[in-house]
Design a protein around this nucleic acid. Sequence first.
DNA 1: TCTGTTAAGGGGAAAAATCCCCTTTTTTTA
DNA 2: TAAAAAAAGGGGATTTTTCCCCTTAACAGA
Lengths: 218, 218
Amino acid sequence: MKKHSVVIVDDHLLFAQSLQGLVNAFDEFEVLYHVKNGSELIKKLLESENVPDIILLDINMPVMNGFETMEWIKENRPSIQVLALSMDDHEETIIKMLRLGAKGYLLKDIHPESFYKALNEVISNGIYYSERVATTLLNSLHGNDEKDSNSGKQLKDTELTFLKLACTEMTYKEIAQEMCLSPKTIDGYREALFKHFKVKSRIGLVLYAIRNNLVNSK
Amino acid sequence: MKKHSVVIVDDHLLFAQSLQGLVNAFDEFEVLYHVKNGSELIKKLLESENVPDIILLDINMPVMNGFETMEWIKENRPSIQVLALSMDDHEETIIKMLRLGAKGYLLKDIHPESFYKALNEVISNGIYYSERVATTLLNSLHGNDEKDSNSGKQLKDTELTFLKLACTEMTYKEIAQEMCLSPKTIDGYREALFKHFKVKSRIGLVLYAIRNNLVNSK
DNA sequence: TCTGTTAAGGGGAAAAATCCCCTTTTTTTA
DNA sequence: TAAAAAAAGGGGATTTTTCCCCTTAACAGA
């Protein structure tokens, strides 16, 4: 029987290498190669006819992150099953990734046996959720989450731009200039986001944005 | 020849498990066990006479993080060589960990061969630095780092307390009450930290603190 | 075409944050 | 032990931030 082929995309070489060992230890799977980021993946996919069955995709990577990479795969290699693989258990991130077309979302603290199960399920059913992810999504659906229930409506471009600049030492006046809008309009965005995220101050906004990976904090 | 024994402390089970496979593949090393956090490590160390040669210690963990764990090891099992193992390449974090007694600092994007080298070096020389860590430390010594050159003088307890509360939606007035100090004193801390970190606003302070892991952002 | 919605922006005031210069009391240290 | 440095706190002014209520124009759906 032909083994299912897996590609690993993760900037943590040590992790990628170790994970490769783990996957290769499973009878049904084998790792074709692993790469450090989205750009490298695309290069490899373009230059090789050997299309993998599964891509294990990290989200936080330098150069080209998981979201951008996922978009490219969806556009150009829609037949590949993508499992997102991240330490980030924030709802915004999970939903964003699944919306982009990931077939499952694994947290890096997953137990190796569940990982094996995930690989198999994504091959047979085309979908897998880890338990904690499922719980998070359920909470979201039922609105049981104080802070995270806002993830439904996604931010408009202009709001996101504002948010990014708000996570900066700029004053609102400077942000307004940067965005070529009136300070009053900026104030409107501010108020909208405060309500949306249920925060009380710009500090709260920054913390929320960082915790939910809406801006890259580092 | 007896193999050198290794213990892995990391909350990412998948990583820990994979890494265990990698380490066991080296002739000279074998993994005794791996645990999810500092508390579990201590429990294991206390109930077993089998003292490991090397501990691979993650820093960001729930329950009991790498810093606290390192302190305990230094106090109670000083003969064990500890290699910190983190994704975090910020100077503050590296220096803090090395000050606490870690014998080396590995970044998780390290190449597996360097990892093997690190294990060997820490056994033979009792010390190892990955290249990027060494570079960071050199920059620090030569003061070539705009923002990070302040890592030398470390914060006083009271300043750190203030900083943590500043990374919160509390107003300064509330922080003052919480710390049982006059708002004016708090204002003094604020100004001192602004100068120390070369930031212009409370937002800047929060960003700096998060980026340098002075507070735990998540 | 009427109507509801949304983006953009204004007025104005209260509350926080920022800044600079100063006093008093401890604590260090030369 | 006298001088220096550090810690706690005050006065007061200027900006920024935050809030609430209102107007106008564009636009989409029934």
